[in-house]
Amino acid sequence: MDITQIIIPTLLLGGIGLVLGLILGVAAKVFGIKVDEKITIVRDLLPGANCGACGYAGCDQLAKAIAEGKAPANACPVSSAASKEQIAQVMGVVADKTEKQVAFVKCNGTCEAAKDKYEYIGVKSCKQASLVPGGGQKSCGYGCLGFGDCVKACQFDAITIVDGIAVIDETKCTSCTQCVVACPKSIIEMVPASSSVRVRCNSLDAPKASKDNCSNACIGCKICIKQCPVDAITVENFLSHIDYSKCIQCGKCAEKCPTKCINIYE
């Protein structure tokens, strides 16, 4: 075998690459337009996950919007407080302190509490299972199906399926809301991280049906309303709601809740 058979192609392709590279290099100098320095600095301070939680197509677009003043300096819900402050410094504004939000699964229908209506042997995906008559195999039509569409959607490894339902690790949650979008049952909600008393149920069934379907369900008994000293709780469609802006986290409602669907989180 002749060595030139290797050398010539290498040189030729290398040469083409070199020439094209040079042309591009020169073109970048000649045609280059000045990009606002702020864009690059802000871009470096953003997390770079391109999760889209801010509403822009990606971190690049958000950086551009922040630099142009179209978006506030704290528009990224994912980045840490420290980097938000740095971005605010670059932009010369004071960052508004925003309360950290975390995703919360409004269901406690564990394998134990909520039985299956039938055996589901289709594609292991919540989205597919929710299309089956009855909205999935779970006895409660509002509950978490536990196939983990949210786990796949989470880019930060914050969700695990424990005992048939999704559980969110709030220390890892960056409030990017990807899981909220991914859940076909819409049972994941963004709540303030500081809130500790939450209703862990999403069932709008009548009390009897709710109770039959799941032993952890909210039955709309309104005992919590009577317990609450600050009127933070309302019951609508047999489901209790806590207004987190009013809640003082005294935990009295959770104490008296007969099905323990109101939980206290540490």
Binding site: L13, L20, G21, F31, G32, I33
Partner: peptide, 21 residues
């Protein structure tokens, strides 16, 4: 491989030119 090289640089070049002009 030669065509990939050409196309990739061509697109980059066209992008630069359009961005400017």
């Amino acid at each position: 491989i030669a065509f990939i090289l050409v196309i990739a640089s061509l697109v980059q070049f066209v992008e630069l030119v359009i961005q400017k002009t």
